[in-house]
């Protein structure tokens, strides 16, 4: 697993898309800064936190779908002692990438606002941002492995990360149930959005719990998929 993790790290830091995504993040933070009245870090974070949930999964889709589309996976998947380590290594990379992305948001936000604002909100929101980013990224890792083609994986990733999928499912179920069921309250991107607007502790707990469920479910399904399916 160490070898695979090092390999993914080597690949990750040579991907232009990683730095492009971080650059987009900083630009979006700058733009968001113009739209908020109270220029504090915590206020800015509540506006910008969804960037990580949107952009980190995109990077996940790019880096792992390349393994299948290029065929590079053939070079290592047959030689590992247990295919589960491939998922474990990918999980480590997703964690590293999301941590670094959160750091980009935090550092650029603090530098631009120079005022932390509500510290508790800032800390809790940062944690929720990280977990929601991880949850969406792990879900995309599973999607990438299931589809094995870059284009459908990217389309679904964008739909998840931008909340389009969430809105679509919410609209359909609200229509079907006459507004009785609001799916947005149960999907990760929807809950994260709600938390950004309300900043209530119960909403934060929901984000954490649902993120953990997403991560656990995606990991379990990914392990099952990689062990049962042929690599090529």
């Amino acid at each position: 697993m160490t070898g695979l993790t090092k390999m993914y790290c080597y690949r990750m830091f040579r991907q232009k898309s990683l730095y492009i995504i971080w650059a987009i993040t900083v630009v979006m933070i700058l733009l968001n800064l113009q739209m908020i009245e109270q220029r504090t870090f915590s206020t800015l974070l509540c506006k910008s936190g969804t960037l990580v949930t949107m952009l980190s999964p995109l990077f996940t889709a790019i880096i792992f779908s390349a393994d299948h589309s290029s065929g590079f996976i053939k070079n290592y998947a047959g030689s590992v002692s247990d295919k589960t380590v491939i998922i474990a290594a990918r999980a480590v990379i997703i964690l590293i990438q999301n941590l670094l992305s959160c750091c980009v948001v935090v550092i650029s936000g603090l530098l631009l606002t120079r005022s932390i604002g509500d510290t508790k909100i800032a800390v809790v929101y940062t944690m929720c941002m990280l977990l929601a980013g991880l949850g969406c990224s792990f879900a995309v890792m599973l999607i990438t492995d299931l589809f094995r083609k870059t284009v459908p994986a990217l389309i679904l990733t964008l739909a998840i990360g931008t909340g389009i999928l969430c809105e679509l499912i919410s609209t359909i179920t609200a229509f079907a149930t006459d507004g009785d069921i609001i799916i947005k309250n149960y999907l990760l991107t929807g809950m994260f959005q709600i938390f950004g607007e309300t900043q209530s502790s119960s909403d934060a707990v929901k984000v954490v719990l649902i993120s953990v469920i997403y991560i656990a479910a995606a990991l379990t399904a990914s392990v099952f998929s990689i062990k049962k399916r042929d690599v090529i």
């Binding site: 070898g3 090092k6 690949r11 290029s70 590079f72 070079n75 290592y76």
Partner: peptide
């Protein structure tokens, strides 16, 4: 199976790390 955006050395380096 080769990463198209990497050189020959870099592709082999990936394999070596693994």
């Amino acid at each position: 199976g080769l990463y198209p955006d990497m050189t020959a050395f870099q592709n082999l380096k990936c394999k070596c790390l693994q």
